[in-house]
Structure formats: C-alpha cells, structure tokens
Design a protein around this nucleic acid. Structure first.
Lengths: 222, 222
DNA sequence: ACATCGTGTTAAGAAAATATTAACAGACAT
DNA sequence: ATGTCTGTTAATATTTTCTTAACACGATGT
C-alpha cells in the first residue's frame, strides 16, 4: 500500500483530499505545516508528498527545497497544490523540484488520476534506472525511448506497449493482458493489431528484444 | 541572513512588521523617513527595502526613485506598503521601480510569504541569468521572453503556456495539465484553444522549440 | 504431404489528433 | 468613440497513428 503525506494548513482540504485518497486505497498521513511535514517525511518515508504552496511559516516551495536536500527523500515524488493557475509559484514549483502540481479548486477525479499516474511513473522509472547497460530504456515523463544513447520518440500505442513489456522484463504478457492494459478493457480490436504494433517495435528496436511465446503472448528481454 | 530595511513614519507599523520579520529570521533595520532611509540603505546594503508610500517629507515613491539612481542599489528589491484603495500608488509604485506591493491593513502571514517569495525570486533569477545559451529564456518578473539576446513581450496566455512548458524542458505536459495550469481548474475552454496558442508561440519562437506528442501533449525542447 | 493454427508482414484506408486560418467578441488604451 | 491587442471558437485542412484485410510463413499433428 502506498503512503502519501498530505500537507496543507487548511483542515478542510486535508480532510477532503485525505478522504478521496483513502477511498482509493492509499495510506494517508497529514500535516498542517511545512516544518512538521519535513520531520514526518523523514520518519515515514512516504511514496508521495502533496504540498500546498501557500502556507504560513514555511510554504510549500520552501518545504520542497528542504526535502530535496535530504538524501533519502531525493527521489520522493512531490505534487504541489496551488491556488490558481497563473502565479509564479507554479513555475517555481518545478524549479524547486516538484514532479507535478494540481490547482485548486480540487476535483476529486482529477486528483486521483494524477496521483495514480505519478505513482505509476515512479514504479516504472525505478526499474528503468537499474538497467543502464546496452539495452533499452524508457522515460515516461519525456515520453522517449533510449537505445544505446540515442533517443527515439514513439507513437502512443507503441510506447505504451513497450512500457508494459519492459516493466517486467522476461515476464510473458498474454494478448488478453496486453489488450486490457494498452487498449483498455472496453475497446475491441482484432488480434492482428497487437502483432502489427509488435512488428513496429521490432522494426525500430531490433528483433532481439521482443520475443514471441506461441500460444501464450509476448515478452521483453534485455 | 537576509537584511531588510523597513521604512515607515508610524512607529506602530515599524514594530509590528519588524517583529514579524525578525521572528522569521530576517535582520531588520528601520527608518522613519525617506531621506534617512536612503542614507541607511547606502551604508547597510539591504537585500530588501519595504517602503511606505505615504510619508511626510519624502514619500515612498520619491524615495524609490532616488534609490534607483544609486548604482549599487539598482537591484535591491523594493516592496511598497500602501493604504487600501490607493490605486494610484500601486501603478506609480511599479513605475518607480518597485518589485511588489502590499496593501494595508497588513496581515502578517501574507507579508511574510510575499517577502519570502520575492527574496527567493531574486535568488533564482540570478541563477537563471547564468545559463545564457542559444535557447529561450523567460523572465517572469519582467514578463519578457528572451531569444538570442532579443527580448520579446508576449501576451499573458502565451507567456504562461511557454512558462509552463519551459519550466521543465523535455517533460511532456498533457492537455489536461496545461488547461489546469494556464487556464485554471474551473475555466472550460475548447481543446483547439491550446493548439492555437501553441501555434502562436511557434510562430514567434520558431517551430523547433515546442514539440507535439500526439495523443499525449506538448513539450519544450532546447 | 497436407491441413490447421498461430503469428508475421504489408499496404491501404479509416480514425484520431493536431494544425491552420479566419472571424468575432471583449478588453484596453488612445 | 475608435482602433489595436488578446483570447476564443468554428470550420477546414493536414498529419500521424491505428486498424484491418489479405496473404505468407512456419510449426505441428495426421
């Protein structure tokens, strides 16, 4: 279960966001100010920290800068919450090392989908970081595929398919799972569609990376 | 520790603001009139000067103009303090070279967060100035875009869009994120609106900077 | 050898997403 | 008021991506 640290000086917002995230199965810890949040973060080691930009005493940006100084929290994901879409704080947010931000007023659905997206990104980017040798690497944030130092831009479906296969090298993904994950449950497309996308990937990456397991599915191998 | 020079003819206000800033760890010097303030500023070289607009003898705007004439104080930050509703002073203040503006009655939290924000901005703008490359740079304070030494003034939405994209070069921003950030959460505008603004940016900057990732979003690349 | 099954390959066309242009309304300044 | 600048939209064009159909190929079992 993923742990999320939520920091805002307004109790209402803590409750509102907290409720929505708990409902989705996340473990939520809260704090009402930046200083306290840093202490809690060090103790609890959350997967994600959601920080309000505007807070008394120590605001979100400052807190973020502090958090980034702490070695073990360097890679912790940070999302900013900001009052409006147009102020300086947003940009400064990225300068300070934030990974995403959400503007108020907060819509539950949007919030949840952002949180999911960013946590998924973390999961895969960590695995990617490990295999630094001659193989293939992907960067979800930049939406790029790297092969031997070169970077390539892939169409969405190809990218998602590769991302799925590469997320667990060696594991065989059945056609059913692939369809479900890349195309989404409801969409119905023919079986050849997967083949064609696999072919395009092989064309771009080379045949050796994606292996066919007849009657079962496909897998990625370094 | 950052040094702040506080100038107001009312003793109460000097104490009140002084207390709140000291508590945050700033070194506070005070002065009760414009002429004296200028002398002190030259001697003390503060990082930030907070000037009341309404003062006997030499008012804040006049003092500000004088300060701007002094070479070594050209880049010192100045915040104006003025009574509510004094619209004139706000405009005149910025003309005179102020960096921000706070209206009375003063709320400690707001004051502190403004002060922090503006000092931070100074810090970061210095860093930004360093990376002068062939690419694009923006100055949020001046609301200007620089390309190969030339400076351009962009309309608000275009500026905000560029600022967002440039805030994390390489990162793909989805339409959802862009709308949320540049237009704000509640506002509902069509998807084509983003395209049009992207087009305007490309027209001004050149096509190579903003890249489209179909089905995903846009990104800025140096 | 032949039939069958699962997958590979290709190119064409459909579908989706974005680009472009022009027109219009509102803000703003003169 | 008048003209300029900005932001938005609609309509249309263009581009890229996706999907499909048709056929090829190889493995397997008879």
């Amino acid at each position: 279960m993923e742990k999320i640290l939520l920091v805002d000086d307004e109790q209402d917002i803590l409750e509102f966001i907290g409720y929505n995230l708990s409902k989705e199965g996340y473990e939520v810890i809260t704090s009402s100010n930046g200083k306290e949040a840093i202490k809690i973060a060090q103790k609890e080691n959350p997967d994600l920290i959601i920080l309000d930009v505007m807070m008394p005493e120590m605001d979100g940006i400052e807190a973020c800068l502090e958090l980034r100084k702490i070695e073990k929290l360097k890679d912790t994901l940070i999302i900013f919450l900001s009052a409006r879409g147009e102020d300086y704080s947003q940009v400064a947010g990225f300068d300070a090392g934030a990974d995403d931000y959400i503007s108020k007023p907060i819509k539950p659905r949007l919030l949840v989908s952002r949180v999911k997206a960013i946590l998924r990104r973390k999961g895969s980017s960590q695995e990617e970081a490990i295999d630094e040798e001659g193989a293939i690497r992907i960067d979800r944030e930049k939406y790029l595929v790297y092969k031997e130092g070169e970077e390539y831009s892939f169409p969405k479906k190809e990218f998602e398919l590769l991302a799925l296969l590469i997320s667990k090298p060696g594991k065989v993904f059945t056609r059913e799972v692939i369809l479900d994950s890349v195309w989404g449950g409801e969409v119905v497309v023919g079986d050849r569609t997967i083949d064609v996308h696999v072919r395009k990937l092989r064309e771009k990456l080379g045949d050796q990376y994606i292996k066919t397991i007849k009657g079962v599915g496909y897998k990625f191998e370094a």
